[in-house]
Design a protein around this nucleic acid. Sequence first.
DNA 1: CTGTTAGCGCATTCAA
DNA 2: TTGAATGCGCTAACAG
Lengths: 365, 365
Amino acid sequence: MESQRLKRPNIKKIAEMAGVSYGTVSRVLNNSPLVKEKTRKRVLKIIKEIGYTPNPVARALKNKSTYTIGLIITNMIYPFFPQIVQGIEDRAAQENYSVIICDSQGDKEKEAQRLMSLVSRRIDGLIAAPIDDPENNNLECYRSVIKRGIPIVLLNYYLPIPECDFICVDDKPAAEIAVEYLIELGHRRIAFFHDVFSRSNNRLLGYQEALRRHNIPFDESLVFARDVKKEGIRLSIGDELDGYNFCERMLKLSPVPTAIMCSNDAIAIGAYRRLAEVGLRIPEDISVIGFDNVSYSNYLYVPLTTVSQPTYEIGKMSFELLMERIKEPKQKAKRILVQAELVKRRSCGPVREEEVIEIGKGIEV
Amino acid sequence: MESQRLKRPNIKKIAEMAGVSYGTVSRVLNNSPLVKEKTRKRVLKIIKEIGYTPNPVARALKNKSTYTIGLIITNMIYPFFPQIVQGIEDRAAQENYSVIICDSQGDKEKEAQRLMSLVSRRIDGLIAAPIDDPENNNLECYRSVIKRGIPIVLLNYYLPIPECDFICVDDKPAAEIAVEYLIELGHRRIAFFHDVFSRSNNRLLGYQEALRRHNIPFDESLVFARDVKKEGIRLSIGDELDGYNFCERMLKLSPVPTAIMCSNDAIAIGAYRRLAEVGLRIPEDISVIGFDNVSYSNYLYVPLTTVSQPTYEIGKMSFELLMERIKEPKQKAKRILVQAELVKRRSCGPVREEEVIEIGKGIEV
DNA sequence: CTGTTAGCGCATTCAA
DNA sequence: TTGAATGCGCTAACAG
């Protein structure tokens, strides 16, 4: 049963070798000023010589702090997350924290299981992107984490728990700026392609706000979304297909919209594909804007204008938020909205003069 | 200094409430048969009532096993990794293991630092995708991990440490099959676009092997690679630009190759872009094959034929390899090569009859 | 400044 | 079948 781990030197061994008590070694390790410089030097020398590192497990048992945080995300595959994780991990490493990664894969049971596992592991804090579904999330589980005294920084999706900090990109103005850009180019009939996340609702709000500001009536038939009731909540994987399908449906509208605002780049690339099949040129016939600025968006056959989120930075900030809260557990919860930025490339152009778009001369498929 | 953690019930508390000694509670927790059924029931009831979970920190201190593994990868952003991580994490969770994630970002110092941190945390094992550079890796650090008695499963890049297991996609035959497919379509002048990883050397080998088998002489001028000496080893980020540049250079060749084998999809999309600019049609004028089968590859303006690696499965397998080794530390190291698969889409077609390709009628850029 | 010692929560051995 | 006691490696309080 006992694992085959090698016997590692411990504090007693060091003490013995240095000819001091192990309390003294502990003081050296913790930079206590109550050690004579000479003794400290001697102890440090021995420590270096045999490559001793204090056992964090024992330390954690004593201190009730594991120097470990949990990170739970909805899906690594979604291109938003890897950089976030990178930002968190990088910042955490600087502070000697380790990050336990958990991927709920959008599955409520998995999320609950991971949450309990993390709690039982005595993590010092949690950064969590909860499952983005108001009707089917693990709110109570998250509450119980807080009740256990473990601070939480929420990412992307807010849960109504007053003790939690929250960080997210400010989607509404981001989308608003993007749509406004289209309007300035003369577009008035702008479609909106939706994914299943509530964040894209905020983007929709931004879209509507931009229209309102320019006195363009909101036309619900221009908003395309997956039918969650029929198809169930699925993760973002496969948004390309959604974009493709939305576009197909959109092209049956009359008149055809002259621009599309997509709630992510995967949707945009799906739309691109359908437009190409049908022979519509971007941006001459139709303009497209994406969201996320994924790496390939600049290399589509027409480089995509898209909204860029500072993902690495968000990761870094969320770790810093968590640190603050670990240090000051009682401070008022913060809600941080990060500004995104419109990256203008070639997929948007002035609206066409003529209204009628001819369809059907496209690439053979 | 002491963190504000809530006092959690411990084994003594349970014992007290159940009216037994805490040794008995421990036995219940560890499914010892030396407990009367009635006592067990009573104890379990109390445990459930107050939601007690044993403290894994204390347990680890006692058992010398933390039920934690380390995972170190070269870069989350590289699309290969997220699914690997997902596979590992998912499988680990099933076995009650936690995964500490580390991202070296291709930086040798970071990798060394993470490695030491992981070791000092007493992880039970390590899955590592080491920095892929024969002249500048942390071989000695990895050796010292092994010396500490911590087993390692190597991912992607083999380090000459006999105790390490190894798992990777079998790149050579994968590329070979892809190139063979092009040859069967009649192509004889096939370019190869390289990234900076040693794995793509194996793909190059596969390319050469396929040529050899069909008596096509290898022409070095058809192989395009970034000049690592001049530009330094950089991570895969930005491969799109490489693909674009390679393609630009390739198009100056005379005669222009009729097909391109790319060592990843990002390179392929960059090549696509350049081909579009110049008005070359895929696959009528030129065929393209990628590698990785990233999610968008099916949605390029011509769906990309590409080599698909079972990434999630590889993650899962690497965890299982590690488990085996933790249980049987002395067994002979395994080296597993996973087969990849060619996904045929629309980017490849029969070679053109005429040899001369006209360039310059492309999309205005 | 330094040595001694009492736990942290648990698994396990030894008695009973 | 159960209780008592020891120690895992460390920190911190106390005593000197």
